[in-house]
């Protein structure tokens, strides 16, 4: 049981990276981005291209760090892939969502367009890399280390938690200390007042999509390292991501982090009683329960 909770925290950390992005975007543009899961997939596959294709071509040695399953290639690919997904995310907003916003389109149209964007991103991934399961390093032994209470954890997973932890700290510092971070919080509070104060809200929106995309990309790569890569991987995470976002209070970044961890643990612990194939159903049930019992989330929304 303790082991399932630890695995739940690992899965939850990945979900949290996605739900933080969802909640940031929702807080600023009041829009539920159904393509967010597929941005994770895109990040995972861009990293796959960088690790297997480009790195080999550039002659970067294919070694691993200690007992981790990856080395310099992934260390370089990780930030580059994050930037690429940030770019895709900003591009989607500029060419698709922003024109619809400007026309004050109905929320259903916005949701449909996001769903369409999700399919497009996923199909591009499937066309380029096929529908097979992929690994960053096929055939590598991934030994586990034994922690107290009989918990087996792989070195990869410990590093994964450290990476997520660092990204969240960086985001916290950005939001609390930097001028653009403060402007993002101000814009989430009241966009009209932000404009009246002279804040360039369009620039704030671009930063928001960029950060949301970068975090989604990171989440996708980490999921690929921890489990495997597949064209539907991000979309399968979308439901727990939304549940985590709602659980934490829509628009509340730190709530989304906690919500992600809760969803990860709930899904993993459920496998002690249910078949693992029911994991998405568990996410769905938790989401319905939250909506019925406490739709404002455990911490309330980010907006008063």
């Amino acid at each position: 049981m303790v082991e399932l909770i630890v695995y739940g925290i690992v899965l939850g950390a990945i979900i949290a990276l996605g739900s933080i992005g969802l909640t940031l975007v929702y807080g600023i543009v009041r829009f539920a981005n159904f393509a967010h899961g597929d941005l994770m997939t895109a990040g995972a596959y861009v990293a796959l291209f960088l690790v297997t294709g480009l790195s080999a071509w550039l002659g970067i040695p294919d070694t691993t760090f200690g007992s981790l399953s990856f080395g310099w290639r992934m260390a370089l690919a990780f930030p580059i892939a994050m930037l690429c997904v940030a770019g895709v995310s900003i591009l989607l907003d500029r060419i698709l969502y922003r024109p619809l916003r400007a026309k004050r389109s109905h929320p259903v149209i916005m949701a449909m367009s996001a769903l369409g964007a999700a399919f497009i991103v996923r199909m591009i991934v499937l066309i380029l890399w096929g529908a097979d399961y992929r690994f960053y390093r096929p055939g590598v032994m991934r030994p586990a280390i034994l922690l107290p209470l009989g918990v087996k954890i792989r070195p990869d997973q410990i590093l994964l938690l450290l990476v997520v932890f660092s990204l969240v700290i960086l985001l916290y510092l950005f939001l609390q200390r930097s001028k653009m971070g403060k402007a993002m919080r101000a814009t989430a509070d009241n966009m009209e007042l932000a404009r009246v104060s002279g804040i360039d809200t369009e620039r704030v929106i671009i930063w928001t999509w960029g950060i949301g995309g970068a975090l989604a990309g990171a989440g996708g790569i980490l999921y690929g390292i921890d489990v495997q890569l597949h064209g539907g991987m991000g979309f399968n995470l979308l439901l727990p991501m939304f549940a985590a976002t709602i659980l934490g209070g829509i628009g509340n970044v730190y709530g989304a982090l906690v919500g992600g961890l809760v969803m990860g643990i709930a899904q993993q612990v459920s496998t002690a009683y249910l078949l693992p194939t029911y994991k998405p159903a568990v996410a769905f049930i938790v989401m319905i329960l939250i909506l019925l019992i406490r739709p404002q989330g455990i911490f309330g929304g980010g907006r008063s």
Partner: peptide, 10 residues
Amino acid sequence: PQVDNVFPSL
């Protein structure tokens, strides 16, 4: 503005 003239979470 008359109402909503501050950023409440800041």
